[in-house]
Amino acid sequence: MIPLAFDYARPDTLDDAIALLAEKGEDATVLAGGHSLIPVMKVRLGAPEFVIDIGRLAELDYIRVEGDEVAIGAGTKHRDLVTSEVLGAEVPLVPAVARTVGDPQVRARGTLGGSLAHGDPASDLPAAVLALDGSIVLRGPRGSRTVGIADFYTGVFSSVKEPDELVVEIRLPRKGDAGWAYEKFTRRSNDWAIVAVAVCDGKVGLVNMGSTALRATATEEALTAGKSIAEAAALADEGTEPPADTSGTPAYRRALVKVLTRRALETAAG
């Protein structure tokens, strides 16, 4: 199993990468860690004619505090999210979620920006960013723009990102004092989540409960209205459209998401 042939370039700067992406148009695909893209290309479900490798752009590899927010370069690898002291202090949910992505080898290559840009509804980090109410900085030939995560996804593997734009940064509010938890339910340790729930500061992000990462808004509203955790968690499947596969039926996922939401909220409450 090998990809179809393609041309390849590794620009030295972000500006060069954006210019090249504009030039190549829809025939081009961006490669960061490659752990979403290469598997798809190997089974020939994806066959770009041109691959632009941004995996070594130091400009995209940083984690820093900026005012009320933490800014994370899109090229930051999962492993670096796990070990980051800044994230551990400012948004501890992120290292905890990143630690559950794939396996050590995958975490050594996969990137935060790549995971968010790919937008698999079963992946962990989109729901975490959703629970944190973060935002995504996009850059293209027309300049930069910032999109709130709640407005980012439009469907399975699709977002408001234009084909000539790159995810360059993820901005998260500093939540060092807030209660948080991540409950991920898998069959095997490195499987995709059957369902997972990310909680931070009363906000709830859901993994694999629909065509995109979702917020459990009914649960959040119930909590705001002073309902108990158990009562709020019982609403976690409202507005979801969970998928069916060999690991779970929609009914199972609906039941599971309530259990995991309750557990996550209890853990977050301390």
Binding site: G34, I38, K42, G55, Q105
Partner: peptide, 15 residues
Amino acid sequence: LDGEAVKSCTLLAVQ
């Protein structure tokens, strides 16, 4: 790869 365990079936040689 530069000291980190990676899966060489999911990396291009050019990377």
